[in-house]
Each structure stands twice: as C-alpha cells, then as structure tokens.
C-alpha cells in the first residue's frame, strides 16, 4: 500500500506548505518533474518552450495550491494544470501558425492499422539509440492534439481511464475511443519504420 501512504504524505505536505513551510513544495513536486516536462514537450515541440511551460505550470500549482481539494491525486491535478498551460501557449502561438485544437475528422473517423505478416520484437534496449527515440517522439508529436493528449495521459503518464477522463473533461467512453485511435495511428506510422530498422540492422551482435 505504498501508494496510499504516498497520497497521505502528499496531503500532509500540502497542509504544511499552506501552513507556511513553503520549502516543502520542492519535495512535493520532485516526483512529477518528468511527467510535467514530457506533457509540455509533446505539445510545444521544442525544449526551451517546454521547459518554460513546465516551470509556469509548477508556479501555477504553487499559487493555487489552496484550491487543491484532494478529490483527485495531486499528480493528476498537476497534469491538468500543465495541460491547460500547454494548450493556452499553443493558442497564443497559433495566432501565427495554425494548428487546430479541435478534432480533425470527427469521432467516427476510422483508422486502419499497418498490415504486417509478422512482427519481430523490438527490444527496449533499442531506446539507447537516439534515432529510435526521435522516431517515437516524432510519431507521438504528430498525432492530432485530442489523440495526443489522451495517449500521453493514459500510455505515457499511466493515468487510469477514469483519471484521464477527469483531466480531459470527457467521458470514459470517449477516452477509450480516442485511445484506440491514437494507438492505431501510432501502429500505422511506427510499425513499418521500426520493422525496417529492425531488419536493416540488429540491435545486438548476439541477437
């Protein structure tokens, strides 16, 4: 029940911070630095903007800490703030460059996967190669925003379907639909590329 203990500690920390022990905020957010940054990066596509957005999100969380009600996890609350911060940045940027935040094709859009006759497992060690990391970042980054959000919350940040629905203010059914599309889009774009890399060169000399 490590998680329950963690949650209780977080609530205690928050109470203490509000009571004046503000330095505890450093400790409170430490486990979430990566999540917040990754969320921001997938929207802003450049490290400097993402870092700035992440910092803003943490500052907002601090300033609004008293409005945290404890009816969701602190991490989920923080991710919501990050998402809003990232979205509003994109809106400001879009005054110049147009990328719609709205759904591109409608909820009944259909995604067909890439057809392969077989699949040879790509080992996680392949992520040591920057080429592979870039490929994945690019594929996630080029998902339409509503699918990207859902995918990140669920499959990268590992929120539950209910938590993702809460953050996105949509139903659990919509989360599942969007998640399915996002995953199929990624399979479609990534599977052929990864497969080709896999056959071009082996990950390990002994594999």
């Amino acid at each position: 029940m490590a998680e329950a203990t963690e949650l209780r500690n977080e609530l205690q920390m928050i109470t203490s911070i509000l009571g004046g022990e503000t330095h505890l905020f450093h400790e409170l957010i430490r486990p979430y630095e990566r999540s917040v940054y990754v969320m921001a990066l997938s929207f802003l596509h450049n490290e400097a903007d993402a870092e700035d957005t992440a910092q803003e999100a943490f500052l907002k969380a601090y300033r609004n800490l008293s409005s945290f009600r404890g009816d969701s996890k602190f991490g989920t609350w923080l991710i919501s703030i990050t998402l809003n911060e990232a979205r509003s940045r994109i809106r400001r940027k879009n005054a110049v460059k147009i990328e719609s935040l709205d759904e591109p094709t409608g909820e009944d859009g259909h995604v067909s996967p890439a057809l392969l006759r077989d699949w040879r497992e790509i080992p996680s060690e392949s992520l040591e190669r920057q080429e592979v990391r870039h490929l994945l970042q690019e594929a996630i980054g080029s998902l339409p925003p509503i699918y990207r959000e859902t995918f990140l919350l669920r499959d990268v940040e590992e929120l539950s379907i209910a938590e993702a629905a809460q953050v996105l203010k949509i139903t659990a059914v919509s989360v599942k639909v969007r998640l399915h599309r996002a995953r199929m889009m990624l399979q479609k774009s990534l599977a052929p590329q990864l497969k080709q890399m896999n056959s071009k060169r082996r990950w390990f000399p002994w594999s």
């Binding site: 630095e33 990566r34 940054y37 990754v38 990066l41 490290e47 870092e51 996967p113 890439a114 057809l115 392969l116 006759r117 077989d118 699949w119 497992e121 790509i122 996680s124 392949s126 992520l127 040591e128 592979v132 990391r133 994945l136 970042q137 996630i140 499959d155 990268v156 590992e158 995953r183 199929m184 990624l186 399979q187 990534l190 599977a191 990864l194 497969k195």
Partner: peptide, 26 residues
Amino acid sequence: EICSAILDSTRNILILTADDRVYELP
C-alpha cells in the same frame, strides 16, 4: 497471422513509448 502481427506490434510500441528513456529531461 496478420491480426496477431498488428496486436504484437501495437503492444511492442506501447512498451517502447511508456519507457522513461524516450524523453530525456534537458
């Protein structure tokens, strides 16, 4: 085999994208 390959590749991709190494902090 086709559907199995789709399932396997999707599962594989999800394992990769969930890995902490995909995104490095600056």
